[in-house]
Simulated assay, not measured.
Amino acid sequence: MSTSTSGLLATLRRHWTYYVAEAAGAATFIIVASCAAVVVQHPTSPVRQWLGDNDLLRHVVLGLPIGLAVALMTYSAWGQRSGAHLNPAVTLAFWQLGSLSATDTFWYVVFQFGGALTGGFLMEQVLAPWYTHPDIKQNVTVPGDWGVGVALLAEAAISAFFMFVLLWALHSEQRRKYAGWLLAGLLALYIGFETPLSGMSLNPARSLGTAVAAGNFTGLWVYFVAPIASMWLVAVLFQRYYHGATFECAVLAGCATPAEAGPYARQQPQFPDPQGDE
């Protein structure tokens, strides 16, 4: 399909429900993460008082509702329609794999950023009395005490592993059923243990949404460069290792049915497995 203006508008008319699902998912992620941060981190919260001053424990607890929210969104009806990317870096990697057309990719990314910005500004207003506390920092992802270099390496590492696990799960019919839960659990672990290094983003839209709302752009480029570059590289290497498989149905929630005629309404391919392990 042409990427001209007419082609973009035609695709928007056909698949707008998928794009809205991505926007809603990105906004919901920021809403859940921001509310959880206030509940777990703000000194006046009973949960924070019960958890005490153990940063690691608080980060582990913080990861639980966020991971659960991602899993629920993934397996929701809307998540299954769009594939529950919620992340421009994931979408661009799937475009590289042949899962999405250029026009669908464009709208996915636009709506993901739009949803994240909406969620960021909404939380800035709703949580204003508590949001600016130093322990919450308006839920902005900024490099930790080790600096920008460490944050860049950390984001690249967790993004690369995230994409590898995702493609590894999607490569198997059996593992694909549990891919959403697997990735949600990995995300929760990242929040628990990686947050001190980079603030744990993985997601350019998530970082931009809170950064713009807060007016804090410290190290923002890290959360664009690291996730996009590392996820794209893993996708390229994984595709090459599996002999150029197109991964047409490489989505967390599985393929849409042909009747839905959406971005993933295609025949599900059989992926070659060099190890013979289905």
Score class of each variant (00 low, 15 high):
Thr5Trp: 12
Arg13Gly: 15
Arg14Tyr: 07
Arg14Gln: 11
Tyr18Ala: 12
Ala26Leu: 13
Val32Pro: 00
Ala33Cys: 05
Cys35Leu: 12
Gln41Cys: 06
His42Thr: 09
His42Leu: 03
His42Ala: 04
Leu51Ala: 08
Asp55Ser: 14
Leu56Lys: 14
Arg58Met: 03
His59Cys: 07
Val60Tyr: 01
Pro65Ser: 09
Ile66Ala: 05
Ala71Leu: 11
Leu72Glu: 06
Met73Ile: 08
Ala84Gly: 05
Asn87Lys: 04
Ala89Glu: 10
Leu92Lys: 02
Ala93Ile: 12
Ser101Ala: 10
Thr105Tyr: 02
Gly119Leu: 12
Gln125Lys: 12
Tyr131Met: 14
Pro134His: 07
Asp145Glu: 14
Val148Tyr: 05
Ala156Pro: 03
Phe164Arg: 01
Phe164Gly: 03
Leu167Gly: 00
Ser172Arg: 04
Ala179Ile: 02
Ala184Tyr: 04
Leu186Met: 10
Ile191Tyr: 09
Leu197Pro: 01
Ser198Gln: 08
Met200Gln: 10
Ser207Asn: 06
Leu208His: 06
Val212Trp: 11
Gly215Asn: 06
Asn216Leu: 14
Phe217Ser: 11
Thr218Lys: 09
Thr218Ile: 07
Val222Gln: 02
Val222Pro: 06
Phe224Asn: 04
Val236Met: 14
Leu237Gln: 02
Tyr242Asp: 07
Phe247His: 09
Glu248Leu: 15
Leu252Ser: 02
Gly254Arg: 01
Ala256Cys: 15
Pro263Lys: 06
Pro263Cys: 08
Gln268Thr: 13
Pro274Ser: 01
Gly276Leu: 04
Glu278Tyr: 15
